[in-house]
Design a binder for these strands. Structure first.
Lengths: 227, 227
DNA sequence: CCTAAAATGTAGCGCTGTTATGTAACACTG
DNA sequence: CAGTGTTACATAACAGCGCTACATTTTAGG
């Protein structure tokens, strides 16, 4: 007997909100603004998402999906250290491309009183799966010293996440700009995990060549976009 | 001829605001709330700080001062790698102790429309001075591979900052909790900079013993606090 | 003491998320 | 096909926010 909600409206609201966040930043995210762009009233946000927090949560899920999409693009080769380098580049590329989404996901930024739940955070941790698998292969091949792959993956996460957040915060300026720091950091991370300077450098350089081909240039099996 | 502002009022407002931020988080920071606690009107915030952003900026400066205070507590010994470990622990300790301030400083969190200026960020970069000096000594002693000390210091910064932000965001759970990750990360960082597994482990363990004595337990030359 | 200028209090504007209320539209039942 | 119950949506309002115009008070200097 109940009246059904317009299914298009829900996706339209998410799309509009995500675009507003990406284009104009967190301040542009307001119920009235979103409703105006969607041609409805502010109530739509409450019927479909229970409030602004629910809508933000949907956008955060979208952000996790985009990150996961980039991470799964890197191919597995016989040089897992290079694979790891590409993974790091993919992670950073996603953060820079979807900077506002990234800040909402990991930056601790609170948008309209939104706070992450434990389930939301699990989405973030799940992203490490590819990294853990890759680290395992590095250890198996003897490139990395025997250790807990999950722990090593966390180290990589910390380093890249830390660089990216400071880069987004405009903390990195010449001569220690983000690009320069990132390349040397990748090498240092591999060495810290057990690789040698020579082999690590070679693999990181190789990952730089693979990056545009596998990540930026071709969206090979494009995840169905919402728009 | 002009009437002078109450000098006590200015410091009182900063104290109250800093306490509100520390105790109840960013949402509690409002002109009306602060004015009510101070027993004045909201106008006081504008005469003394030109708005909420100005007040937040003062709190951020206080946060930088506290960080710098912790960093200058670590002593220079004949084991600069251990010194570096203590520096990392001091940095993390400050972030956990003043978590809301830290988020405002480096987390990219915007409080009441406050945004950092280039001068503010320079305060943050200045914190690295101690680290750069320490890395230089590590290189001179041959513990670290020859490299740009500023670059290596940035790597350390990224890793510890990344761990701390994810820790504050409740992203780190067992078995990869923050404490476990931090200890192994310190060792990996030293190795990545050129140290050996054996010597790095020994120095990091030594830094763990020094940490309470130099950082937490005694505030040796207490910076004059505002309260 | 008197006056000019700055500090402060009051009231209000435009904005926010959210909610109460009324209305319209749909799905199901008879 | 009519009736009805349930829900979606629109409108208006409330409390809160940062901020400002204005009136008032207070103080320093001539």
């Amino acid at each position: 007997m109940p009246r059904k909600a317009d299914p298009n409206a829900r996706l339209a609201l998410i799309d509009i909100a995500a675009r507003l966040l990406a284009d104009e930043g967190p301040e542009a995210l307001s119920t009235r603004r979103i409703a105006a762009e969607a041609g409805t009233s502010t109530m739509a946000v409450y019927t479909h998402f229970g409030g602004m927090s629910g809508l933000v949560r949907e956008i955060v899920y979208e952000g996790f999906a985009r990150l996961q999409d980039f991470m799964t693009r890197v191919k597995q080769t016989d040089d897992p250290v290079a694979d790891l380098g590409v993974l790091g580049r993919a992670y950073r590329h996603n953060a820079l491309t979807n900077s506002h989404l990234y800040a909402a996901m990991f930056g601790g930024e609170k948008l309209s009183g939104f706070e992450l739940t434990e389930e939301d955070r699990q989405h973030g941790r799940y992203t490490l799966t590819n990294v853990v698998e890759c680290v395992t292969r590095c250890i198996t091949l003897g490139r990395f010293r025997p250790a807990d792959p999950g722990l090593v993956a966390h180290h990589m996460w910390f380093a890249v996440h830390g660089l990216v957040t400071l880069e987004l915060g405009d903390y990195l300026i010449d001569p220690w700009n983000a690009d320069a720091c990132f390349e040397t950091q990748l090498v240092a991370l591999m060495i810290g995990a057990g690789d040698t300077l020579k082999t690590a450098t070679r693999s990181v350089v190789a990952s730089a060549k693979r990056f545009p081909r596998e990540i930026t240039d071709p969206p090979p099996n494009g995840r169905p976009t919402r728009s």
